[in-house]
Structures are given as structure tokens and as C-alpha cells.
Nucleic acid binder design. Structure first.
Lengths: 300, 300
DNA sequence: TATATCTATAGTTTAAAGCTATAGTAAGGA
DNA sequence: TCCTTACTATAGCTTTAAACTATAGATATA
């Protein structure tokens, strides 16, 4: 048994069809049929139930599929690592990020580029908790900036900074007159919030829960910029990370703080403990840690 | 790149010698040389430093070796799982155990054998904490009875019972006259204890530490029976698990309890969360859990 | 210098993974 | 019911690459 067979098997399962899978794998259909049959003979177990129209996994097939996917992922990850060892100095740094990332990252990158001028930096927005896991485990990113404190056997996350959430309202909103704004006040308003999967959404909904308030969600948006525009048009209020909101203010809006202890999140840097990281990636991680250690010390 | 190449590479690294590795792998030396060279070309990295007399790993080689070993282990584990799926009902249950296991296990096995008369049971003594990990991860055992409360992402351990340690002394020993025996008393005596790596050793030494006493270790033994014999000859005292000591008593020895709260250990059943376990193994694990739940309830 | 011990190269054999062509099987439409 | 469609399996041939043997090259030890 070898990895080729695992690859053949997994794509066959995914395509639920020998002919299509064969096309995906750039081999002929009989070759694939043969390979799968040989595999089944080798383990003396039926792995696929060839039903009329479509394939079903047997119990053994299900186990074999799960294991194969895991093995292939690890194998592919190893090849990424080797490639990164080869391209040391001229490679890529892939970063997963949350929304407020872009406000502090440029400050760090300027200095970093002096040491590693040829490094290519790839930033992708990582939204929900599963995606954070997934993008790390699949080696899509070298590290990720997240509000999830993940700590398991494989992933290590270290806190970078704390960030408050602020309320963005139209300047003519009645709340702007109030001295102190509570969650109960916001509950009466029409709330603009990120759609499911976005990290800020979870933070905000948790705060509502902790404050025993029920949010009146009217708009669900994908980009925080959209939320700002809607507020500007007087269509509702929104809650945004502090770092973000500074750049979002326009003459027609007002930024107010909310009277709550729950509207604060910690932002972490998370990475795989065991993965090989090129010197460039290590340096960048170090720079980020330094930046915030210095930043925090400066604040106090 | 395929698993064959990983296997060739790892054994070459382990043997530090192409010719020997080739023999291990039942292939000719030129075939192996060729395979490794092809591998190095494929990843465009030198993996081995061919020094005069012996091989050295490069940095990339080291990473590749570590990953390969892990991948091969997982791959072999999968094959064990498939084999167990095939042999369901007539397979083997492999158990790792600590010393006191044998006193309660026969009670459970009698009933188990009614349901699974053809199952082969393999018991191996698992000594230190690393061995517990290793034997589980390498699929050497289906589960293990241990005094280590392991809980990580892969291994789950559930408590079975608590067990006191007792003191075994010669019947003429002066301690036999004392009403209450403390660790300070034992510290003055010549102690017989298991060698490094045995689970009881760690438990006992920890208790000495907690009681601020320094053990006077004179004999280190591998089998608890040896400890009993030595005590019978009047060569020292020993500390043994309660369940064990009942069968160890002879006319020339005396069993005494020790005045300490630290001489108790919890015994756990540990297994891999993610591994496929045959119905027989599941039933046996269930039987063991039931036995001790019932046993505990019966005690109180 | 000779010998032992190892790895690399050259050329050949062989196993198996791939191909094309085609047969077999079940579902769906006329 | 029969034909078409959409699949998978079988048969026989081709090609790739992994293995082999024989031998050359390199380096340390006697």
C-alpha cells in the first residue's frame, strides 16, 4: 500500500464516481478501478459499496478514508515544509488575520522589510474559529492573528494586546446626548453586525449575553466598512474594535464608549508548535511580539 | 515521493550506513543509494551528509526524518486498525498493565470470555510514563492500566480505583512493635524499591518527598516478588500496593499500614480517543469500568 | 602500499502501473 | 419492453521505474 492508492481512494470517495475521479487524477478509469480493487484485495476488506448511481463507504472504508485524508494532509504539509527550507530567504510569509490587524501591521512590516526585502507577504482574512484551526492545520498560513485563545497539543497561542469595542452612532442619534451608554440602551436600537463566522460577531454577541441584553439585529454585513456606511445613513448603530473605529469616523458619525466590562477582547498570535518556520517567519513573529511588549509597556 | 522512499530513508538514518540499511530492507545497496539520491533530487535538498565512516543528517534531513517517522507510524497504525476490522471477533486484545492489575483482572476476564471465547488476550507490563505513551501511540496496546493521569488531545484516561500502599516488614522487625508507623520511621530503615521506570517507584518516592523524608534505598529490584523475598530474609522493608501485598504475606513477614495521606494512588484506564477499537476491546473496557463502579459502590 | 569498507555508476531484468478497447450492468425515457 | 445513457469491470498490450549484478571510486586502517 502506498500514498498513491490513498490519493486515488480519497478522490474517488470525494467524487463519488470512478470516472470523474479518474479524470481528476489524470489517469484512465480502468486504471483507477484496478487500483481500488487491488487496494481492497490488499486489506481484504470491501471499502466501497458500488451502488447503482453513486458510491457508499463501508464502515472500514469510512475509517480508511478518515485516516487517508489525515495522512495525505500531513504528507503534503511535509512537502510544504521542505519547500520552505529550500527557498529560505526568498519565500513567502502567509498570515491569517482579523479585522484590526491592518492598523498595526504596517508599522511592523516596514522594519521587517529591511532585513528580508525579497520576502513575499500573503495576508488572508480568517473569520471563524474553525477556519483558524483549519488554515493552520492545512499549512495555509504560517501563523494567524485571532481573538481565539487556542491551546491544544499542536497549536500555541500567545496574547498580543487587548482591544476595546466602541459604539459607532449617527451624530444625531439620541444616544449621543446620553452621558453613559449601557447595553440596555443599545438593545433598543437597530444593530448592524458581522455575519456568522466573523470573529467580531462572536465577541459582541457574547457581551450581549453577559450583560443580559438581547440584541436587535437588523443588518448583517460582511465588511466593517459597510457597517460604517449604514451608520452614516442613520440606519442603525454598530459596535467595532477600537483600533478600527478611529479610521471609520466621519463628520456624520460619533464614537462613544459603552459602559460594560465585557466589551474587551484579547488578540492572540497562534501558530503550530511543531511546524518548521523559516527564519523570515520567526523574525516576523518575534517582531510582532516585541512590538506589543513595547507597546504595552509604553501604555502603562 | 512515496512511503517506500520514507521507509528507505528512515532505516538508512537509523543504520547510519547504506549497506546495512539495504540489508535490513531486503534490497541491494545500489538500489538504496539510487532511491535516496532520487529523493534528494526530488526535494532539491541534500538530506544526508556522506562523511567518511558514517552518515550525518542535514537540517532538512533532520526535519524530513522526524516527519517521516511520524508518518510511517501513523501509516502502520492504520494498517493495524484495518486488520482489526477484518479480524473482528477472533482478534487480540492487547493490554498494558501495572503490577496490581493481575489481582482484579481474572475476575473480569471470566465473564468476558463467555461473550468472546475466541479472543486472544495479550498482557504486557508497562513501566514508566513514557512507555505508557509510547505503547499507546505505537498501537502496541489497545489500552493500558496506569497510575498516570494522562489527558491530552489524543489520549483519554479515566479513573478506576484508588489504592493504598502498605509496608511489608519482617515479623521480628522493631517497627512491628510500634502502634503507628510514619515515614520518618521508614527513612531509618533499609528500603527495597523498584528500579527506575517502574510506576510504583515514582509513587513511593513522591510520597517520601511530600512527607519530607529521605528514603534509604538499599536494594533496587525489578520484580515485586523479589522485594518480598528480601523482606522475608530480613534484609530490609518494602512498600507495596495494597492489592499486591495481600498475596505477598508469609509467616515471616508482617503487613503494616503507614501513617500518611500521601501513600495513595489512583489507577486509570488510558486509551487513544481516535483509534478504532474492535467490539471485543470496547466490551472489555466497558466491563472494567462497570466492575469498578460496582466495586466502589459496594465498598461504601 | 595493500586491504577493508563503504558509496556511486552502468547496464540489464522484471514487476506493476498505465493505456485502449470493449464487455457488463443498472436506471431512465420513448 | 426496448433502447439509450452512464457507469464499472475485464482483457490484453505498453511503458515506466524499481530492482538486480557487476564493477568502479573513495577513504580509512593495517
Amino acid at each position: 500500500m502506498d500514498l498513491r492508492q490513498l490519493r486515488y481512494f480519497t478522490t474517488t470517495v470525494q467524487e463519488k464516481n470512478f470516472s470523474k475521479a479518474a479524470k481528476m487524477l489524470h489517469i484512465s478509469q480502468p486504471s483507477l478501478s484496478n487500483a481500488i480493487m487491488k487496494l481492497e484485495n490488499e486489506v481484504s476488506l470491501q471499502l466501497l459499496e458500488r451502488n447503482t448511481r453513486g458510491l457508499e463507504l463501508t464502515e472500514a472504508g469510512g475509517l480508511f478514508y478518515a485516516r487517508s485524508v489525515d495522512l495525505l494532509r500531513r504528507f503534503d504539509n511535509m512537502q510544504v515544509e521542505l519547500k520552505e527550507m529550500k527557498d529560505v530567504g526568498s519565500g513567502t510569509v502567509s498570515i491569517g488575520s482579523i479585522e484590526s490587524f491592518k492598523f498595526w501591521f504596517p508599522k511592523i512590516i516596514r522594519n521587517f522589510k529591511i532585513n528580508y526585502p525579497n520576502i513575499h507577504i500573503k495576508i488572508s482574512e480568517i473569520l471563524g474559529e474553525e477556519k483558524v484551526f483549519d488554515s493552520l492545520n492545512r499549512y495555509n498560513v504560517h501563523f494567524t492573528i485571532t481573538n481565539q485563545p487556542i491551546n491544544n497539543d499542536e497549536i500555541l497561542s500567545t496574547p498580543l494586546y487587548k482591544e476595546k469595542f466602541m459604539l459607532l452612532i449617527h451624530k444625531d442619534d439620541e444616544l449621543n446626548e446620553k452621558e453613559s451608554i449601557t447595553f440596555q440602551d443599545i438593545a433598543k436600537k437597530e444593530l448592524i453586525i458581522s455575519t456568522t463566522g466573523f470573529q467580531t460577531r462572536d465577541d459582541i454577541l457574547r457581551a450581549f449575553k453577559d450583560e443580559n441584553a438581547i440584541p436587535n439585529i437588523l443588518y448583517e454585513i460582511e465588511r466593517l466598512e459597510t457597517a460604517c456606511s449604514l451608520v452614516e445613513e442613520g440606519l442603525g448603530v454598530t459596535i467595532l474594535p477600537e483600533s478600527y473605529i478611529k479610521s471609520a469616523a466621519t463628520p456624520n458619525t460619533a464614537i462613544r464608549s459603552i459602559d460594560s466590562n465585557f466589551l474587551e477582547r484579547t488578540v492572540y498570535l497562534a501558530f503550530l508548535k511543531d511546524r518548521y518556520l523559516s527564519p523570515a517567519v520567526c523574525k516576523l513573529v518575534e517582531d510582532i511580539h516585541c512590538f506589543f511588549r513595547w507597546d504595552v509597556r509604553n501604555d502603562t
